[in-house]
Computed example of a mutant assay.
Amino acid sequence: MIDLIAALQTLVLGAVLIWSARVKLFSRRAAAAANRSALVRLLGQDRALPAYRLLGGVELTLGGLLLLPPVLRIEAVAATVLAVGFLGYLTYARRAAPASSCGCLSARAAPVSGRSLARAGLLVTAGALAGLATGGWLPALAGRPVAGAAVLLAELAAVVALSPELDSAWLLPLRRLRARLTHPLRGGSGVPLLATVQQLQLSDAYRQVAPLLRSDVREHWDDGEWRFVGHAARYQGRLVTAVFAVPLIDREPDAVRVAVVDDATGHTLLSLAGTPPAAGPRLSVVPA
């Protein structure tokens, strides 16, 4: 099985590199993507776009070589080196320019996150495995089509799941489907979501963070005597989620609390508590 997996890595790497090159070379939003990336901080405004295009050319060339016969070990080594470079760049971007966008597999703005780093690590592993291959991906796939297809689907699904910039293609449709299937106007507690929204919109916590909000209710869930309601928001230039905690028993708006959570890091940037009910979690003010 390890021989099959190793042989298929050139196909995975080639497909990912060509897809990434497509964004950098042919997208109409490539210039905007380059300007949002950490390349601006690393190389300067004038060099960011040429470097972005050059990287796309390298990815397209190497991706094509990986997909086409003959199988050369040097191609797997080059792919591994490139993946290590991606990992180093993303680590730098997350630390030195946390507001920058990855610009990897889509021109859509998406901050560098732990998922982006995990994807780069997956590509490094794929490159190392490709170096162990003794044959090409086409004979391996033809010899064991069912197992090969399963491996490919699993790896490509992992790449997509670890790519925040691709969420709009699969994650948001899944959320919409869940909303249609679960009838979000009524929560599991039997309290209508509309009643919860009305309560939180009358609260002081909502009034304080309302200028930050960028969406209607995106998700909600019940936990014990509390209902948590999430809104997309922007705080100090960061993409965040405003999570409101609304008691299901206490109907007073002053009992509503809110926490502003950074989407990229998961850290709580701001927490505001109203007048607490008799029981439940307490949120204290945390300076940003």
Rank of each mutant, 00 (worst) to 15 (best):
Ala76Asp: 07
Leu270Ala: 09
Leu239Phe: 03
Val256Lys: 03
Ser20Arg: 03
Arg214His: 04
Leu239Val: 04
Arg47Leu: 15
Arg207Val: 13
Ala128Thr: 15
Ala142Leu: 08
Leu90Gln: 12
Ala32Ile: 14
Ala97Val: 08
Ser271Asp: 11
Thr125Phe: 15
Gln45Cys: 09
Val197Asp: 04
Gly64Glu: 15
Val151Pro: 00
Cys104His: 07
Phe86Lys: 07
Val12Tyr: 06
Asp263Asn: 07
Leu194Ser: 12
Leu283Gln: 05
Ala205Ser: 12
Val258His: 03
Tyr52Asp: 12
Lys24Asn: 08
Val71Tyr: 04
Leu185Lys: 02
Ala255Met: 05
Leu17Arg: 05
Pro253Trp: 04
Glu165Asn: 06
Trp137Thr: 06
Gly103Ser: 11
His267Glu: 11
Pro192Ile: 04
Arg257Tyr: 07
Ala30Tyr: 13
Leu172Thr: 13
Gly148Lys: 01
Gly56Tyr: 09
Ala255Tyr: 00
Gln199Leu: 11
Ser101Cys: 11
Val159Met: 08
Gly114Trp: 00
Thr275Trp: 03
Val286Pro: 01
Val261Glu: 08
Leu212Glu: 13
Ile249Glu: 09
Leu66Asn: 12
Ala99Trp: 12
Leu185Arg: 09
Val124His: 04
Asp167Phe: 00
Ala133Arg: 00
Gly114Pro: 00
Ala76Leu: 08
Val285Trp: 03
Ala179Glu: 10
Leu213Asn: 03
His220Tyr: 14
Leu272Asp: 11
Phe26Asn: 15
Pro253Leu: 14
Arg108Ile: 15
Gln208Met: 12
Ala147Asp: 02
Ser101Gly: 14
Gln45Glu: 13
Gly57Met: 13
Leu105Gly: 10
Gly88Met: 13
Val260His: 02
Ala96His: 10
Ala245Thr: 09
Gly85Phe: 14
Leu87Asn: 12
Pro69Leu: 05
Pro277Glu: 00
Leu166Gln: 10
Asp223Asn: 04
Ala130His: 02
Trp170Asn: 06
Val197Leu: 07
Ala161Glu: 06
Leu82Val: 14
Ile5Gly: 00
Val260Arg: 03
Ser284Met: 02
Leu153Ser: 10
Gly135Cys: 02
Pro139Arg: 01
Glu252Trp: 02
Leu194Gly: 04
Ala130Trp: 01
Gly56Leu: 08
Ala232Trp: 03
Ser20Asp: 11
Leu171Met: 06
Arg119Val: 06
Asp167Ser: 00
Leu117Asn: 00
Ser284Glu: 07
Leu129Ser: 02
Leu138Cys: 02
Arg28Glu: 15
Ile74Asp: 10
Leu194Lys: 02
Gly237Phe: 15
Asp46Phe: 01
Gln199Asp: 06
Val246Thr: 13
Val23His: 14
Val217Phe: 08
Glu219Ala: 15
Tyr52Pro: 03
His183Glu: 07
Val286His: 06
Gly135Thr: 03
Phe86Ser: 14
Ser163Glu: 11
Gly224Val: 03
